[in-house]
Simulated scan of single mutants.
Amino acid sequence: MTEIEAIERDEAARISEILQGAVDPHVHSGPSIAPRIIDHLDLARSYSDAGFAAVVTKDHDYSGVMCARLIRDHHPELTVRVFSGIALNNVVGGFNPYAVEHTAAMDGRIVWLPTLAAENHLAWEKTSGWVHPASTQKIRPAAGIPVFDDGKLRPEVLDVLDVVAASGMALASGHLHVSETRIVFAEARRRGVERLIFTHPEDIVGGTYDDTRALADMGAYVEHSLGFFIEGSRFRTRTNAELQAYIDCVGPERTILCSDLGQMGTLSPLMGMRRGVATCLALGYSDAQIHAMVASNAAAVIGLAD
């Protein structure tokens, strides 16, 4: 074995150790109306073999809690705990408190505010060139779901916030513009929501470092999608230096690193997490700091220790 091979072997082992007990709270596995490279069960097998503690599957068009329950009930050999949540897009009726209550009753862990149906997302689409991979073949294009009416949060938004507060689930910002997120999160806090996730400030939502700090000061964890940063991802739009700047503006103790992967034509979620850890090591973060960002913080926000 050459010296380079030995170094690579040792780093691979170090990455594996850091990922023991990891939690990926944002993965796009299938079945899905959009093509996926891995389904929920194979994802669970992959993460179980790698020593992960938990994973939260996310689909833009349905609540995955039933799939998660089937995997937990029928595959006791898997050591990873599989959870899901609900994204408040058109298919589930937008801000639908009944759907959120149902998700909570089936042990859902995260409620994502509108993503592909967020008015901000639809505005971003016009300049990004991104199109839902199933929208022209299988489903009609998304219709925007407003958050405000005459400058005030709509009653159904408040209803959903109350359900999230009562259930203890985490509220994630989805693809709302950061200016909307700051208002919704402030109201969520007033209504008793304890777990908040600010979703990928680096892309779509327009989050600056100042916005990121403000939301972290509000008690939110800041979740970064490694697919936007890591080498080899077809979604890479950001640099390592930008990742470091986002982490440092709130600290590793308020940062979550998720894969946000599962799409066709790019890295697998597990490879994304491994490359994310390697990137953080190269940036100089300690093993303990990285473990917090890929494990402990996400475990706390989804209530894994409760």
Score class of each variant (00 low, 15 high):
Glu125Ser: 07
Leu283Met: 04
Pro114Glu: 03
Glu8Phe: 12
Ser29Gly: 03
Asp260Ser: 15
Asp210Thr: 10
Val82Asp: 02
Val147Ile: 15
Phe228His: 14
Gly64Thr: 00
Arg254Ile: 06
His28Met: 15
Val100Ala: 05
Thr239Glu: 05
His291Trp: 14
Ala87Ser: 14
Ala99Ile: 01
Leu267His: 05
Asp287Cys: 10
Ala278Val: 00
Arg274Asn: 05
Met293Asp: 05
Ile18Lys: 12
Ser179Ile: 04
Ile37Asp: 11
Ser233Ile: 03
Gly207Glu: 04
Arg213Trp: 11
Gly262Arg: 11
His40Tyr: 10
His132Val: 09
Val184Asp: 04
Tyr47Lys: 14
His102Ile: 03
Asp248Ile: 05
Leu19Cys: 10
Arg234Ile: 12
Arg45Phe: 02
Val178Glu: 10
Thr57Glu: 07
Val250Tyr: 09
Gly151Leu: 12
Ala245Gln: 13
Asp149Leu: 08
Ala53Trp: 00
Pro155Thr: 07
Arg36Ser: 07
Arg213Thr: 12
Ser225Arg: 08
Ser63Arg: 13
Thr237Gln: 11
Thr208Asp: 14
Ala68Arg: 13
Val222Trp: 05
Pro97Trp: 03
Thr239Met: 06
Ala34Trp: 12
Leu116Ser: 01
Val147Thr: 15
Asp107Met: 04
Ala104Ile: 07
Ser135Gly: 04
Ala53Lys: 12
Phe148Trp: 13
Cys280Gln: 14
Leu304Ile: 01
Pro269Met: 01
Pro141Cys: 05
Ser29Arg: 00
Ala278Ile: 00
Glu8Pro: 04
Asn297His: 13
Ala54Lys: 11
Cys280Asp: 08
Ala298Arg: 01
Thr57Leu: 14
Leu19Val: 11
Lys126Ser: 03
Glu8His: 13
Thr181Tyr: 05
Gly276Pro: 09
Met1Asp: 13
Phe52Thr: 05
Ser268Gly: 06
Gly21Tyr: 03
Ile4Trp: 03
Met264Val: 15
Thr255Gly: 12
Gly251Ala: 10
Ala142Trp: 09
Arg45Asn: 10
Val65Lys: 01
Val250Thr: 15
Arg72Tyr: 02
Leu281Glu: 13
Ala12Ser: 14
Phe235Lys: 06
Tyr209Ile: 14
Leu257Glu: 09
Ala288Pro: 03
